[in-house]
Design a protein around this nucleic acid. Sequence first.
DNA 1: CCCGTCGTTATTTTT
DNA 2: TAACGACGGG
Length: 760
Amino acid sequence: MQNEQEFDPIKSIEKKYDTLEQKPSYLDVLNPEQYQAVVHEGKSLLILAGAGSGKTRVITTKIAYLIGQKNVNPRSILAVTFTKKAADEMRERAVALEPLAADAQIRTFHSFGAYFLRVNAEAAGVDPNFTVYDDDDSVTLLSKAVVGLTKGQSSKYAHKISLAKDYCLLPDDPETADLDSDPEFPGIYRAYEKRLRETGNCDFGDLIMLPYLALKNNPNLRARTQRRFQVIMVDEYQDSNTAQFKLLQALSGAEEGSGTYVCVVGDDDQSIYKFRGAEIKNILTFKDKFPGTDIIRLERNYRSTEEILRVADSVVSNNGGRLGKNLRSERGKGKKPVLAFLQNQEQEAEFTGDLIEETHKMGVPYSDWAVLYRMNAQSLEFESEFLHRKIPYEIVGSLKFYEREEIKDLLSYLSLIANPRDEIAFRRIVNKPARGIGLTSQEKIIDAAREAFAAGEETSITEKMREIIPDFSKKAREGGETFLQAFDAVQGLLKTADSSGSDTAKLSELVEAISEKSGLLEYHKDQDEISGTQRAANMQELANSAVLYPCTREGLLEFLDHIELDRTLEKTDSTDETDRVTLITLHNTKGLEFPRVVITGMELGVFPRQDKTGGDLEEERRLFYVGITRAQNELYFTSCSQRRMYGRNEYSTPSPFLLEMGQDNVKIIGHKPSSFMGGGFHGGDFGGMGLSNPDLNADPLMKKYSRGAKIYHDDYGYGIITSGHVSDEGEYVVTIRFENGGIKRFLPKYQEGALMVVKD
DNA sequence: CCCGTCGTTATTTTT
DNA sequence: TAACGACGGG
């Protein structure tokens, strides 16, 4: 005993040095700002992370540090991102630094919402077995909820409803009426909500809005939740919407002095999703909403060369209302970006192909290259050029696996098993393959089921169908029996909750059984023969992806969540070639980087789009900024003097953004258009307001009578300019569609007296 | 219920 | 231009 006591102080000292020794090396690799951000505590924190400044490293290190060094319970950490990919990467990297991080909630906003709703289903007033309707399903549901809408109207209103939810607006909120000029809109929204609740399902917007409302209306739940989450981090905060902001506020209890530590990370210069409801003001005013916020700027860029960042900065400094940042490259000077003026899109594709081929001969892999464009339609020219030249490429984002017909069919069976009130899923599969159960029969079944649900009956759509089917015609009756038999059979494969762990049935078996017994596999195989598609293979692919899930109700819900909340992945291509050029829209490049980047279609009307002014133009500019800052080593811009759009060959003006890059910051090749001669360059001195393109001002007629302008003609009445182009004779020609239906072309030059622009 | 034809309409889209 | 939806006939 005596001895032991003598050893004690030594032990204690030893321990201290042991601990110092164990100071995790992950802190050593941080730069001073990153380190500050990681060890920051107490107040709220806004990390302004410039492109390529290592923000993921900061977030993941912070999670590891909190758990490993500050003894924060991993379960009390919530980190949200916007994409599944980002969430997966974040979790993986955090766990690599600190294995206990596996217990932290690292999720997308929507997957967190789904999780929250399932756990708190009762408080939130939702069915715990809900599945998630995607945008297509919402459109279908709306068309059933409001009779007499055309398909176009349904998708328009469904889109508006989704926007309303992004802004956290309910049908009765006065602002809701402002979202659409149609005074019926709030009523349409209300009808949609009613029908959606009847199905027991949620749409994407619900996954954010309903958790927020549940917290708002339920103090106990709020207190419990705030106790649970001590640390909340949000990535890509510049693209959060109003509902997400409100949810963050409610979760953190910032207004109630909960003591939750909130850390948001983002870059106001990269906010590009306003059209989806993103509110850049969330990041601009964060410090006001979370008083006492500290701001840390990460301005060291490890991705791009100086020359590239110079162009990026020169462009984005044309925007007003920025938080401000000064990105510095840690990569050295590098090569000056190249701006190529070309004649048309064929030449644009050829030029790009040349670049890729020439460098490939020198040993540059294809995968170094990314070709960026504003619209998906622009990929076509590159595809044919690359196909022709045998340059391997991959188009990112166009293949939407989970939106394929055959996949949605299978998923509908799964959804209906999960939630027997899922009207949309039922309608999708009951008559596929054709069984003689047309729209009328479907209506009868759904109406009966809805009535039963309203009366509080514990039943399902298929049970109701079984009840009323004897009244149907022979054909419909027999077809219905076939469907019910198949459905019962596959539903029976789902193991009930009491079966124990010894049971190894996999969900993939259920998917395969559905394919077979529903007749869908056969049906789609036939379609394959006809259209040469890959549907049968895709169906198998879906089954394969279900192999990791148990064939239980829990496994099923988990699988469906996984799929609904991660629709981007799964671009399994049959070729195993990995060295490929990437073709991608500018929006889709967020978070990515490439050694060599070509930004194409730098023309007014394409990028930026012509109808963009003011704040919208600033967002286009940020999109341009995002594109530029993807490049590590080499950057190219292409601009065509002529472009075929909507079947018409139009002359085009260079993008005003090109003027903003600064003449000396790029190497210009090709035939410089007139607007680029003689000191036409002013980069960065417009304060970012409106269009400052000298070329537009050069021809006042083109500006006055631009596409989209509403006009009044003395002889023909009101109309809208559908297009404007410069003819071969060099004269500006506009095409006008008049309200009476007529389409006429004019030379505005000669119509000054008769043709006037009207405000709308 | 399937197929052809005509007319309309063209962003971006994390979930 | 091209792709997709609406509509009508077999």
